[in-house]
């Protein structure tokens, strides 16, 4: 009896938790990003031209501060995210984007890991024992210690 009650409680808690999580994340997000957040997001996606491989948001150099201020100004003027990054791309080329777009020259960067996932999954699936073969010859030797899980 106790266990059945326990399982009911468990399900109830789980469902409530899921409801809270989904409700909170899906329906209670702050409506818009603040201007500051937007500027910061844009700065994070752009490589600092005067620094060593970090974004404008992360660099502590004066140049990065100046550029952050310019981005913030553009945001306040009402420019869209793409217009602002576009301004940087026009001056520095795609080099300034820390995450190349998944098209053109950047395509392989995004496609190869996905191809790797597919190839790996196929390889793992290929290791499954086919029903017609039985090969037990390589079963583990007795030199293996017992483990907790042996059920």
């Amino acid at each position: 009896m106790r266990s059945r009650l326990g399982s009911v409680v468990r399900w109830a808690v789980a469902l409530m938790a899921i409801a809270i999580i989904v409700g909170g994340l899906a329906f209670d997000q702050p409506d818009t990003r603040s201007a500051e957040q937007r500027a910061d997001d844009i700065a994070s996606s752009l490589r600092c031209p005067f620094c060593e491989g970090v974004s404008i948001a992360e660099s502590t150099s004066q140049v990065a501060r100046d550029l952050q201020a310019i981005i913030r100004e553009r945001v306040d003027e009402g420019a869209g995210d793409e217009a602002i990054t576009g301004e940087f791309v026009a001056r520095y080329g795609e080099w300034v984007l820390l995450s190349p777009p998944a098209s053109g020259i950047g395509l392989a960067l995004w496609a190869l890991p996905i191809a790797g996932l597919v190839a790996g999954a196929v390889a793992v699936a290929g290791l499954r024992r086919r029903s017609d073969t039985t090969d037990d010859r390589d079963l583990p030797s007795a030199s293996v210690p017992s483990r907790v899980e042996s059920t």
Binding site: S45, E58, W95
Partner: peptide, 13 residues
Amino acid sequence: GGQVSVGRPFFDR
């Protein structure tokens, strides 16, 4: 292919 950068946004994602 010219110069591109790969940084935090890519690696994070």
